[in-house]
Nucleic acid binder design. Structure first.
Length: 126
DNA sequence: CAGCTGACTCCTG
DNA sequence: TCAGGAGCCAGCT
């Protein structure tokens, strides 16, 4: 296992999320060093097999809500509430209180979400 | 190797 | 607060 795939690294990171905490897709991507790969994180989790040891339910979107519109039984919400993570009436989670390492990327999100860091000089680095 | 798709995120009106 | 549009990534066809 010389070069773990992106998905492998995603799973490894998700396994480190503490019980009762949640992380956003973009947050996982940022921890992996690729803050713009939030979509890739979603794809990786979507490919998870049934019997896995990855707490995928602790991953939510940037607005603190479940990103599984077509998943039956509200399973993710049930599991989170079971861990003590409360949902507001609007169906969102307070990431400021339950987000793991949330304040870390609150300091600088200029790289998150498909947006590139400004680079006004217009200078071609080479 | 080109083209699509999607458990994403951000900006603007 | 909500809808529309655009950008970025990994995995599949």
């Amino acid at each position: 296992m010389p070069e773990p795939t992106f998905s492998e690294r995603v799973y490894a990171t998700v396994r480190r999320i503490p019980y009762g905490r949640v992380v956003t897709y973009g947050g996982i991507a940022a921890l992996l060093g690729t803050p713009r790969a939030a979509r890739g994180v979603g794809s990786a989790l979507a490919a998870l097999p049934e019997g896995n040891d990855v707490p995928w339910w602790r991953v939510v979107n940037g607005r603190g809500e479940i990103s599984l519109p077509h998943y039956p039984g509200r399973l993710q919400r049930m599991l989170l509430e079971q861990e003590g993570v409360p949902f507001r009436r609007s169906g969102t989670i307070d990431l400021r209180r339950f987000g793991w390492r949330t304040q870390f990327w609150e300091e600088d999100r200029s790289d998150v979400g498909g947006r590139r860091p400004a680079r006004e000089g217009g200078e071609t680095n080479r």
